[in-house]
Nucleic acid binder design. Structure first.
Lengths: 220, 220
DNA sequence: CGTTGGCTTAAAGTTTGCTTAAGATTCGGA
DNA sequence: TCCGAATCTTAAGCAAACTTTAAGCCAACG
């Protein structure tokens, strides 16, 4: 995940760069608007943090300029405390989110994560000896490929993404089947059965446990 | 964590309420603006979800009205797809965040969590040497896992959540069994017995006391 | 010491989840 | 476009686990 920070205050830049790198992100910086624009045109970033008050080209115009060619990369504005008006303009200009200075670093990270949620698709998930590559749609168990159908794949991915948390039947229906009302015919059971069978889970590797009366839980 | 939902579409309300409750939040609802306003004046919520188009008082005016007395409680707007303009007005009126319909439930939960970050949210309950993790549905006593059934789990959690307060049999029946009329066959006794037995409570660690003629009380 | 309320136990009743198979539905290729 | 295969969904039987009832016993409190 590659983040671009466009900001002129050196202290803030260092603070952000270091913090985000510790979070595992690749971070590039630009200390003025035109430099920032140049960089966005030459390479692809996964997210852009944009200060409002920057030299050469201001944040708002830079945001608009980026949006001419690229409507998808999330842009988060860092706005000064009392410039709600400007924030609003930023949103109009195509920013996805805003965060007011002074902000807590934790909150910023959470905001960033939200915008990465949709990109999570490229991630690989693991559960014990099981590996899933979401982008390639491949499941391996101990290096051997397991053929899963679409729904089976989604269900397994969902459980792993919520590793160590109980997933209720309703939650599963809501998030995997996108059924938003109480309605249980036992589909989930059928799919759990199929997954367990295909993965050939032994007793000593019951990565997916049933919690009677509640739902299911995945755990290494 | 107590969330207020102000929304008139019954389907959405139910969907949100159930989902958020499963996430461990306490949820109250109001189906029009004036009801919503009344509720905010009479009690304190930790977060407010506000639809734009609601009867009696619209979301924008309600937001402004709430902000007269209360500038801190986070307000998240649920806005219709193509009303960016309105979203902006909402932000002006003092909302902290906005989310566009149709939204993914997962994203909503993430947004809510951000606003709760400052407040600590304990997902684990403790009682003496006993620990309960609600999301994992696990009970530990001195590090050792204790297998409880669904009802046993709920009952124990209820007692711990009401630590140091007497829970009458009727309250327990109402809140754990969801029986809202006087009706006692002695089920509670049976479950208390089972819990005490499984937790193997010694005399010197009688975390759960019986109050004869009244009910039960949990205390470290 | 008798009455009341709580504890304990076991058996009956109920629910839940697993499994299987058959009926829909979807999708791709001829 | 139509057909066949793969996938998804429904439904029903069964077994196991859980919940409730009920009855006898015991302890607390007057």
């Amino acid at each position: 995940m590659h983040i671009l920070i466009v900001e002129d205050e050196l202290g803030i830049v260092q603070f952000l760069k270091q913090g985000l790198e510790e979070e595992g992100y690749l971070v590039s910086t630009a200390n003025d608007g035109s430099k920032g624009f140049e960089m966005t045109q030459n390479q692809k970033f996964d997210l852009i943090l944009l200060d409002w008050m920057i030299p050469k080209i201001n944040g708002l115009d830079l945001c608009k300029a980026i949006r001419v060619k690229d409507q998808t990369t999330p842009i988060i504005f860092l706005t000064a405390k009392d410039t709600v008006q400007e924030t609003i303009q930023g949103l109009k200009a195509g920013a996805n989110d805003y965060i007011k200075k002074p902000f807590s670093f934790e909150e910023l990270v959470e905001r960033i994560k939200i915008h990465f949620r949709s990109k999570k698709q490229t991630e690989t998930l693991t559960l014990g000896t099981i590996t899933m590559d979401l982008s390639k749609h491949v499941v391996l168990k101990g290096g051997e490929e397991i053929a899963l159908t679409q729904r089976e794949f989604e269900l397994l991915a969902y459980l792993i993404q919520n590793k160590a948390k109980v997933c209720t039947r309703n939650q599963i229906l809501r998030d995997v089947w996108e059924i938003n009302f109480e309605y249980d015919t036992g589909v989930i059971d059928v799919f759990m059965n199929a997954i367990r069978k295909k993965l050939n889970l032994k007793i000593e590797e019951d990565y997916i446990k049933t919690i009677r009366g509640v739902g299911y839980i995945a755990n290494d």
